[in-house]
Simulated scan of single mutants.
Amino acid sequence: MHDIGLTALDLGLRGAASGLFTMMVLVLIRLRPANPHAVLGLVMSAGGAGFAIATAPFIPTSTFWWTLPLLSAQPVVFWLWARAAFDDDFALRPWHGAVWLAVVVLGFTASLSWPIWPAVTKACAKGLSVLALAFALLAILQTVTTWRDDLVARRRLLRMAVVILNLGFITFVAGPALLPLPGAVLGAAANSGGLGSFIVAFTLCILAMLASWNLFGANAVAALPTPAVVAASVVDPPQDTEPGLSERPAVAPLLLRRLDHLMRVERIYRQEGLSIGGLAAQLNVPEYRLRQAINEGLGHRNFSAFLNRYRLDDAKAALSDPGQRDVPILTIAIDAGFQSIGPFNRAFKAATAMTPSEFRRQALVAMATETENRRIRQAD
Score class of each variant (00 low, 15 high):
297 G>D: 06
292 Q>G: 02
301 R>C: 10
283 L>E: 04
330 L>P: 00
263 M>G: 06
346 R>S: 12
264 R>E: 15
319 L>G: 01
273 G>V: 03
298 L>N: 00
280 A>M: 08
272 E>K: 08
324 Q>E: 09
306 F>G: 09
350 A>S: 12
347 A>N: 10
241 T>W: 15
309 R>C: 01
254 L>C: 13
291 R>L: 00
337 G>S: 12
326 D>N: 07
319 L>N: 01
318 A>F: 12
311 R>E: 03
278 G>I: 02
308 N>R: 03
283 L>Q: 05
244 G>E: 12
294 I>R: 07
271 Q>C: 12
351 A>T: 11
307 L>M: 07
266 E>W: 13
307 L>E: 08
236 D>H: 15
315 A>T: 07
279 L>Q: 07
352 T>F: 06
319 L>E: 05
253 P>N: 08
308 N>L: 02
317 A>C: 00
310 Y>G: 08
288 Y>R: 08
334 I>L: 08
241 T>V: 09
352 T>V: 04
330 L>M: 14
239 Q>S: 14
244 G>P: 00
331 T>Y: 00
350 A>M: 06
239 Q>K: 12
295 N>V: 08
315 A>S: 07
341 I>T: 05
304 S>D: 13
257 R>F: 09
287 E>F: 05
307 L>F: 03
344 F>S: 06
297 G>W: 07
334 I>Y: 02
289 R>I: 09
256 L>T: 01
341 I>K: 04
324 Q>V: 05
326 D>E: 13
312 L>S: 02
238 P>R: 15
